[in-house]
Amino acid sequence: MRLSIKYLFLFFIIISISLPIFGQDDDWDLLLDKELASNKIIETATFKSSRILNGQSVELLPKMGLDFRVAHRFAEFNSTDNNFLGFDEASTYFGLYYGITNQINIGIARATYNQTNYGFVKYAFLRQSSGARNIPITMVLNASVSYTSKEYSDKKRDEDFVSRFDYTYQLLIARKFSERISFQITPTLVHRNLVETEDEPNDLYALGIGGRFLITKHIAFNAEYYWVINDASRYGYNFYDPLALGFDIQIGSHVFQLMLTNAAAMTENKFLGETSSDFFNGDIRFGFNLSQVFTLGKTKTKIKDE
């Protein structure tokens, strides 16, 4: 009998050793937190819209998302004495962007600036992620083509179909540092099949720098600058680097982007290659982008068993 009491005692000791291993509440807190730390999370909303201001951002529409975009750039405030701060003239842009998948977006647009027809494909091949896979940046390729349909007075020039095409290739590299702060750098190559003068290169290199600061949940301040490296300004031509400062205002699925910029055009090939206003000389214009995002098809997901 004495022996069995001893064994019973031993049994309790073993139980008390074993128990803590199998999940006391405190352990569960820690263990669950550890599990959550390995959740796969893809960072979203690096920017509020698919354009920072003038140029493309790393933001993509989700699958079946449709973005209807209307944009205007008015004349410079100082352009003439009687043009109501530039509002009498406007360069306009209508676009439709669409999410084929969460990684691939396409878009088409028409801009009044030189009657430009524009199309692009954006492919997000790396997404900023945390948890199971830690990826510090998002990388997106953007390739766009632009067809200038304006009429040229020179008949030979007018009939040269191929000369009307420009191509832009961009690598968009961005990081959302916090909920408030995001940055993007954008190495860019613009190839123009025909340029106006011999001094202008067919291949234009540029580097974009952009960022946002979220002021409130629905209002962000954005800034975007493109350094156009080899434009003909070094030969005395009036070409300037495009700069834009503005705000994103988000109301539901609308984003209003209001900005001050020196660029009149809204497609990469034109605002990089043909901006002739000097921001720092006060040649500043008001501009806006309106974006309305729709979701085609059902907004609901299908749930398995019901």
């Binding site: 669950l32 959550l36 959740n39 999410g99 699925s253 979701t295 059902k298 609901k300 997901t301």
Partner: peptide, 18 residues
């Protein structure tokens, strides 16, 4: 006991996750 990260909810509706 349950634990879940808010950021790992996935939506179909564009901009809803944001």
């Amino acid at each position: 006991q349950f634990a879940v990260l808010i950021k790992s909810f996935e939506f179909k509706l564009a901009t809803a996750k944001e």
